[in-house]
Design a protein around this nucleic acid. Sequence first.
DNA 1: CCTGCGAATATGTGATCACATGGCGGCATG
DNA 2: CATGCCGCCATGTGATCACATATTCGCAGG
Lengths: 239, 239
Amino acid sequence: MTATDLVAETQGGADDPRTLHQQVLARLRQSILLGRIEPGQALTIRGLAAELGVSAMPVREALRELVAERGLELMDNRRVRIPLMTIERFDDLIAARVVLEAEAAARAMPYVTDALIARLEAQDAVINEAEAARDYDAWIGANFAFHAMLYGAAGQSAFLPLIESLWLQIGPFLRRAMRTLSGHYTVDRHSEALAALRRRDTMALRIAIEADIRDGIAHIGSTLIRRDMLGKVPGGNMA
Amino acid sequence: MTATDLVAETQGGADDPRTLHQQVLARLRQSILLGRIEPGQALTIRGLAAELGVSAMPVREALRELVAERGLELMDNRRVRIPLMTIERFDDLIAARVVLEAEAAARAMPYVTDALIARLEAQDAVINEAEAARDYDAWIGANFAFHAMLYGAAGQSAFLPLIESLWLQIGPFLRRAMRTLSGHYTVDRHSEALAALRRRDTMALRIAIEADIRDGIAHIGSTLIRRDMLGKVPGGNMA
DNA sequence: CCTGCGAATATGTGATCACATGGCGGCATG
DNA sequence: CATGCCGCCATGTGATCACATATTCGCAGG
């Protein structure tokens, strides 16, 4: 894996006001979310530091945060890797997404404006373009942006971080699933969600969000976890 | 605030197999959860290191993790503090707890055994003892242990960390609320939950859990946020 | 040829240091 | 006496080093 594989070079100039560890964190988080890092792959502090051209310190701090966000996992040999997936865990993650995102969407409804709907429609168009172009990085990123835009309408300070943690845990496998599926047609119910938003129909919105999560991801993932993800790494625990 | 105020001295011997940063993390997390640290209070790396008798490095890493878990908040002056509370945020936190914990409880039901129920009953007794003794630290800790014991029955790898994050955010204010309320009678619906468990009645369990969260905490917190928590710190943002 | 032991290497952890920034108080000035 | 400026002190950030441990690779013995 090369440096450009691991982290997008698009961000982080010399005059970036963020601290180095924040830049490293953002880049690693995106790499995980977009599935650029192989599940089970161990990440080393010195290795990442060399790739990113920084010292070990910012990398250490970024890895700690990502472990806390459950995007990475600390093994008992004290090394850090992308967590492996089990069917049970995947099922839990989807279930958590459903209840959390359905509720977040419902709570956003009172704050939905026509302007927000317009922005969501534009974002949906971006998603469709990415799908047409078979650009999975863009698709995943735009898809998350769509959801975050909706849930963030209410300025919900509690829901979004939890949802982002779930995405971070699913990301590596979602990407892999899309790359594996032959037809890799992606399903989304965003038009249904948008219709519900226009009618200010909270119940329909909940249903659309739940359907979007379940139909778009659940069946895809469960098909490939078994044959692709498990037992790929020699030792290691799941704790 | 003295060292013994901030961290319980009960854990962390010389032969603790955990790394120093993990010990520091556990102690700080407990301090936040039990409300030992004042909301808005800024924590300094060097200060904590001195109190805990360690160098700055483990403290830095622990603070980073707690920020990622939302138990602490990174201000744009780069200092770290206990987040302030707003009514909106409290409302969000309770709502997230309700949907997440009700679902987690329902998903645990298939794994409920008589032995688990017996352990939960014992834990409920511990809670009642703590309440009778007016020991709020013990009450909060035992209460969380009760919920975690139930949700953990299914080995749910996704729900528990999210729920723990919510507790960490509520903890400082819950403790403060209990100390403030004159009668400080604590409500819990654990007996209802236990009855539902014995009947293996998932719907009743959901209702009991939701009632436990809402009745036990929601009304308590909302009464004192306004007059006690806000504007206690000079500057500072909420980001 | 396989297996087990041991040395060399890689890695995480913790400590310490240098530096830039922010906060705070004293002091001068109007 | 009030106000604004300036310098000192506290603090976070990043780098580097020493050390303990884990891993790995090679070699010897069966």
